[in-house]
């Protein structure tokens, strides 16, 4: 299958851990930006960026909330960089059962960085704007991606095949028939 190419803007926050001073301003302003009404309160526990801090060992790692995962990893990593040991989950962005990060403190629902998307849109996400040490910088780049319409077809087929493997085609057909009647 030859997919058509099209361009897409990728938004990136570049994290320079060497420049981070561990002040957690990013946590504060992230939670303030996402408060309703905007900036009406703040609470780092609701932030979609957290600084993994171990100042006595010189470790400051700003980490953005990524995907939610319902299960912990089985294997975990340890990193040693320039002689410093980093905690097994230090670089992981997941909202995951193994740790308290990236969960709404009231509901436990997962949090995910949305790059402060808003209308009108900001020049840069707020954490980047308020990071004076420049540990966080914002970059946009264009990348060529395959046309999503074609990918979608393929995605649906892969998904259905795996469901059929598990439940059998009859069950899938019945379910599709029942669910589509509701509309």
């Amino acid at each position: 299958m030859t997919a058509k190419k099209k361009t897409k803007i990728i938004k990136t926050i570049k994290v320079d851990v060497d420049l981070c001073n561990g002040c957690r301003t990013c946590e504060l302003i992230c939670s303030a930006f996402h408060a309703v009404p905007r900036y009406s309160s703040n609470n780092p526990e609701r932030s979609r960026i957290r600084v993994i801090r171990d100042p006595l060992r010189g470790v400051f790692i700003p980490v953005y909330a990524g995907q939610y995962t319902p299960a912990e990893c089985t294997g975990r990593d340890k990193y040693i960089i320039d002689g410093k040991e980093y905690d097994e989950c230090a670089f992981c962005r997941a909202s995951c059962p193994s740790r308290g990060l990236f969960k709404e403190p009231d509901s436990g629902l997962p949090l995910k960085c949305d790059m402060c998307e808003s209308d009108p849109s900001l020049a840069e996400p707020m954490c980047v704007q308020w990071c004076l040490p420049d540990a966080l910088t914002y970059e946009e780049r264009e990348v060529e991606v395959e046309d999503e319409a074609e990918n979608e077809q393929e995605d649906v087929e892969i998904g259905l095949e795996s469901l059929a493997d598990k439940y059998g085609w009859q069950k899938i057909l019945d379910t599709v028939a029942r669910m589509s009647k509701k509309d």
Partner: peptide
């Protein structure tokens, strides 16, 4: 001097972690 350290919500780096061989680190 292992690293400069700030306080909460402050961009300055007025403190530092001091790590002397054979002693526990301190700030």
């Amino acid at each position: 001097r292992e690293r400069f350290v700030s306080c909460y919500n402050c961009p300055m780096k007025c403190g530092a972690t001091i790590n002397i061989p054979d002693l526990n680190p301190y700030m």
